[in-house]
């Protein structure tokens, strides 16, 4: 059979398109010159500058706290929603829950942000909580849209899960809650980890929703990056990007290694 050369060539171009901008960020982070696109010799000075910038460091810390908290909350709530939707059969409000847990996936960020902000303002007027806006309101907002992603991931895992395991535990006299935590959760754990990581990334990446629902003093990392990038070139952002890419690469490397090891263990 004649091998088609056009398809592989196209695919290679596609990957160049995906990776060239990322590589350029890394290369120019080691650039001596302040001009981001003109090479002025090797230097690591932008890394030093980055680490001395208190604004970026505190924003990174806030972002990290928000991402960990909302990813955890979203994983708990999303797993519950997925469990209810795949296992509970018919109940009142099922259609409503199905719709509400899928809709955030296609909701534009600007609408999610605006509607939550208006809710928080209205709630503060009515019941006095949340008092002012800041980290708490960002966490609530992120939890809400990340939850939808966890629900999708967990739902597909629940659907493919062999129910006889749970039935066996039930037959042996375990109560439903015990079965859930001792049998179901360990089996679906990989999906939960995937859902958590997805939520963590989405939360860390979000600019629009956080900009709407934040208050004075709570600037997340994307908000600081955005205001810097809007003003023009800033080489320290390249350094920050390189650090993030390095962390992701290491994380993905470890995950792949773990998965391969797990696969070998199960296979052998």
């Amino acid at each position: 059979m004649r091998r088609n050369v056009w398809l592989p060539a196209f695919v290679i171009l596609g990957f160049v398109f995906l990776y060239a901008p990322i590589l350029s960020l890394i290369v120019f982070s080691f650039n001596e010159s302040k001009l981001v696109t003109v090479w002025g010799g090797f230097s690591t000075k932008w890394y030093g500058e980055l680490l001395r910038n208190p604004q970026i460091l505190s924003a990174a810390w806030i972002s990290l706290k928000v991402a960990v908290t909302s990813a955890t909350l979203a994983t708990v709530l999303g797993t519950l929603a997925a469990f209810v939707l795949t296992r509970f059969g018919p109940f009142k409000g099922r259609a409503l829950l199905t719709g509400m847990s899928a809709a955030p996936l296609v909701m534009p960020d600007v609408i999610t942000g605006l509607s939550l902000l208006l809710l928080f303002v209205a709630m503060e007027q009515l019941i006095g909580w949340p008092a002012g806006r800041g980290m708490t309101t960002i966490i609530i907002a992120h939890t809400t849209f990340c939850m939808a992603y966890v629900t999708v991931v967990a739902q597909s895992r629940f659907a493919s899960l062999d129910e006889s395991l749970e039935e066996a535990a039930m037959d042996l006299g375990a109560r439903p809650a015990r079965v859930f935590f001792d049998v179901t959760v360990p089996v679906i754990a990989p999906a939960l980890v995937a859902g958590w990581l997805l939520s963590f990334t989405l939360s860390l990446d979000d600019l629009v929703v956080a900009s709407f629902v934040t208050g004075p003093g709570a600037s997340t990392l994307p908000m600081v990056i955005f205001s810097k990038v809007r003003l023009g070139v800033s080489p320290d952002i390249n350094a920050l990007a390189t650090i993030i890419i390095a962390i992701v690469a290491v994380g993905v490397g470890i995950a792949t290694w773990q998965m391969r090891r797990g696969a070998r263990k199960n296979g052998g």
């Binding site: 901008p21 990322i22 350029s24 960020l25 990334t201 860390l204 990446d205 600019l207 994307p222 990056i225 955005f226 990038v229 952002i237 920050l240 990007a241 993030i244 890419i245 992701v248 994380g251 993905v252």
Partner: peptide, 10 residues
């Protein structure tokens, strides 16, 4: 997995 904002910036 790498920041969307930073890729647009690139």
């Amino acid at each position: 997995w790498t920041s969307f904002l930073l890729r647009v910036y690139a």
